[in-house]
């Protein structure tokens, strides 16, 4: 860990309201680079909403939200888009790999959209480490779920983000694969020095990360 730990996420008294039937309040959450947190709770408690708020895809109603030292409130939509591309990596439960291009190009595209120098050799090394080097020229539709998830993790990490967000990364997987996926997220985020935030209702994740925030208990 670096001498001066950088803040990856700071939340204080964050509220969000959608229409009148849904509201979310997060009193406090702080995450430094290299740290990990599991945001848990039952379905519908606002876990995904919190992840979208952190990603800048939703705008909070009130409270403080700082991501990698940035406040989104003063930024334009396209500035937020660029900031997200450069500093965040996101893995969704559904992977949404682009079907028209190879898995290798999918990962290279993420590097381009992050406005980082395109480095195929580095992507190759990443593929080696994740054990998917043999698949690089395949289309996403030809991969197994486990293989595709490794590609999605590679895509989320290729530009060395400061904060890795994962939304239900294990929910659709059997025990062995869920364990693998979680291991990968922890190891790979650590290898690039990123903070990790996993949103899940999957009990198998409990106790595996540094911190836990139970949104269900807050309500």
């Amino acid at each position: 860990m670096s001498e001066k730990t950088q803040s990856a996420l700071d939340i204080d008294g964050l509220t969000f309201r959608y229409a009148s039937e849904f509201s979310l309040t997060v009193p406090s959450l702080s995450l430094s680079s290299g740290q990990s947190v599991a945001v848990i709770g039952p379905s519908g408690c606002g876990k995904t909403t919190l992840l979208h708020l952190i990603a800048g895809l939703l705008t909070p109603e009130s409270g403080l939200l700082s991501v990698c030292g940035q406040y989104f409130g003063s930024m334009s939509t396209s500035e937020v888009d660029r900031f997200r591309g450069q500093n965040l990596g996101i893995v969704f439960q559904k992977l949404h790999l682009l079907s028209a291009i190879s898995v290798f190009d999918n990962v290279l595209l993420a590097q381009r959209l992050a406005r980082k120098p395109v480095d195929p050799a580095n992507v190759d090394r990443l593929f080696e480490r994740l054990g998917i080097a043999a698949l690089k020229h395949k289309r996403p539709s030809t991969l197994s779920l486990g293989q595709a998830q490794r590609v999605a993790i590679a895509r989320a990490l290729v530009h060395r983000p400061r904060l890795l967000l994962a939304d239900e990364p294990t929910s659709a997987l059997d025990d062995a694969h869920a364990n693998d996926a979680l291991e990968l997220l922890i190891e790979e985020s650590a290898s690039v020095g990123a903070a990790l935030l996993v949103v899940t209702h999957d009990e198998r994740v409990r106790g595996r990360l540094d911190m836990e925030l139970d949104l269900g208990a807050l309500r």
Partner: peptide
């Protein structure tokens, strides 16, 4: 491809 387009935004693509 709406999910792919949404994913592109998550990866840093702007609306334009």
């Amino acid at each position: 491809r709406r999910f792919e387009l949404a994913m592109l935004r998550c990866l840093g693509a702007t609306r334009l």
